[in-house]
Amino acid sequence: MSESNKKLKRKPSNSKLPQRFSMVRSFQLADFVTLGNGVCGCLSLMFAMKALLTQNTDFLFSSFWCIPAGVFFDFLDGRVARWRKSSSLLGQELDSLADFCSFGLAPAVLGFACGFQKMFDLVILTYFVCCGLARLARYNATVAAMPTDQNGKVKYFEGTPIPTTLVIVGILAYGVYYGKFWRFANPMFKHEGPFASFSEAFTPENVWGGEITIFPGYELHPMVFMYALSGTLMISRRLRIPKP
């Protein structure tokens, strides 16, 4: 009998299947807190889309509030991990993925929802998202080699931490609240139903900072450069931020 035929007649191994919900069983308390951060990011994305569909600022403000809630969970999960003295590679990767959802994707989608929708705006928003992704990947790849204190805690961040994008979200929320974006939903007006079409809501005078023409037919909103600045600071290796 040939060797190939012998391989075909081998009996299956007796290895047992993993227990049901084995991944969930392996989660530490800190991992569930981290998932809370991811939930906030997902809700922010969905509320932003709901706001665009309904032209209702209530959903937009719900989307804004999800981001500081995500910051709270991101702050808490590290404290819980140190309190429980439980950390794992799974928790580290989970934390980065949740951060990317809440502080990378969600702020970019909120910028789009507020009117940064021109082609050059989309390029800058994409750059911002890619910077956040690269920053988190670099942190995971280098955290083991970074200097730590006597408690094993990393001393500093290389580049600004991705939760600092909360500043951008705060600026957008301020703009919507004071009528610098989304003027069709200004509370001063009492009309029933949608206050105006999207074509009116996102005209240059209804988007904070207006717009400039780069080439004929290709415009850009100057306010979107805050995303470019934030993304560039995140990937900087020369900028070192002490870790609290």
Rank of each mutant, 00 (worst) to 15 (best):
N37D: 05
E3S: 09
R84Y: 06
L125C: 10
V80M: 09
G193H: 09
V224C: 11
A185K: 05
G159M: 09
H191M: 13
G70R: 09
N56G: 10
F64N: 03
A228L: 15
S15K: 14
L45G: 07
Y177E: 14
L110M: 07
P161L: 09
I67A: 12
Y178R: 13
E158K: 10
F73G: 07
D149N: 10
G217M: 15
S102A: 15
V109Q: 02
Q55A: 14
E205I: 13
G91S: 09
Q55F: 08
P187V: 05
V169I: 09
G170W: 06
F72K: 04
W65G: 14
F27K: 12
P12I: 07
T148W: 01
Q92W: 00
S26K: 15
S63W: 01
A185M: 10
R237F: 02
N14S: 15
G115H: 06
L97Q: 04
D121H: 04
K118S: 14
S88D: 06
M1F: 05
G152W: 03
L110P: 00
Q55M: 13
K118H: 14
F73T: 04
E192N: 13
E192Q: 13
F21V: 06
M146R: 10
M223Q: 11
D77E: 08
E219I: 11
W208M: 14
W83Q: 06
A30Y: 05
Q19Y: 10
M1E: 08
V129Q: 00
G115L: 12
L172E: 08
G41P: 08
C114H: 06
G193Y: 06
R20C: 10
S96E: 00
T142F: 01
D77Y: 02
A30G: 11
I212N: 14
A173N: 08
N14E: 13
R138H: 02
S26Y: 11
V167E: 02
L76E: 06
I168V: 06
L220V: 14
K6H: 01
M146P: 02
L125A: 10
F202H: 10
F59W: 04
Y227S: 05
G70H: 07
K190N: 06
M119A: 15
K9H: 10
T54A: 13
L45P: 03
C101A: 13
S197D: 15
F27R: 11
H221N: 15
V224T: 07
N37V: 01
K190G: 04
F120G: 08
